[in-house]
Nucleic acid binder design. Structure first.
Lengths: 127, 127
DNA sequence: ACTGGCCTTCGAGCGCACTCGAAGTGTCAG
DNA sequence: CTGACACTTCGAGTGCGCTCGAAGGCCAGT
């Protein structure tokens, strides 16, 4: 049964020790993280996998309070898979929407870049 | 010569009047916005086009202070097209990087969704 | 002339997601 | 055993991008 100190967990997840404590305080973990006899946090592989999912949700723009809701659903055990599914699908929908929007804006910015490219080339030709 | 009140500009750009004043205060405009004889702001079509570009930059995640730098470049007139180009290209690079990252995370979330789909289907079949 | 409503400036406040520091305890290599 | 350093909790602070409210001015419609 492998376990990790907060520093190791921070390294492995790419989060900081501060953030790991914050997530726990904020109700994002499925259980209070285990403690060693000395009271230090000991993260399990399961904890790390959960943190990895949390990181993916964050990285795709899910707000903390929604991750908290999702954590609560998972915590409350089997039987609410439909709700979890709905939550993730709704998130997915929003992410795709946002991706499309960003791509459209990027297209407009690219056209702007084209204009400057022309200007810069004209300059170097005329120089 | 068409011009618009702050309320009209807000409508047309999708920003709020508060945000328009804030952008101006923060040095994001190319010039102080014109005023009517009574001191009310009057936005021109050029102002609106500039605001549209600002909106696109924001929507793709450019921070305010970088938009301010870009505005300063444009304000300082011709001759720095290369710098503007570099700035926009660097932004473009970051946006693409982020798009790829979000897509990867979304893939992992999709696999999670698949798992719940299975669970929900099994439930409804067994019910 | 009055009223309602939009405009002005200014500075303060907010929500989010951390991020940090203080004060104290625990752990471990030499 | 000692020194260095990691860990603990707690509350406060930070940076970002707005967002708002107060106090007052201007103006169109009746």
């Amino acid at each position: 049964m492998t376990s990790y100190t907060i520093a190791e967990a921070a390294d492995l997840t790419g989060l900081t020790a501060h953030t790991l404590r914050y997530y726990e305080r904020d109700g994002l973990m499925l259980h209070a993280v285990d403690r060693s006899s000395s009271g230090h946090r000991r993260y399990t592989d399961l904890d790390l996998h959960w943190l990895e999912l949390l990181s993916r949700l964050r990285a795709t723009g899910m707000p903390i309070r929604e991750m908290r809701r999702y954590a609560a659903l998972v915590r409350s055990g089997a039987g609410n898979e439909q709700e979890r599914l709905d939550l993730l699908r709704e998130h997915r929908r929003r992410v795709l929407e946002q991706l499309a929007e960003v791509q459209e804006h990027l297209g407009a910015i690219d056209r702007k870049i084209g204009i400057y490219l022309d200007a810069v080339e004209r300059t170097s030709v005329s120089a």
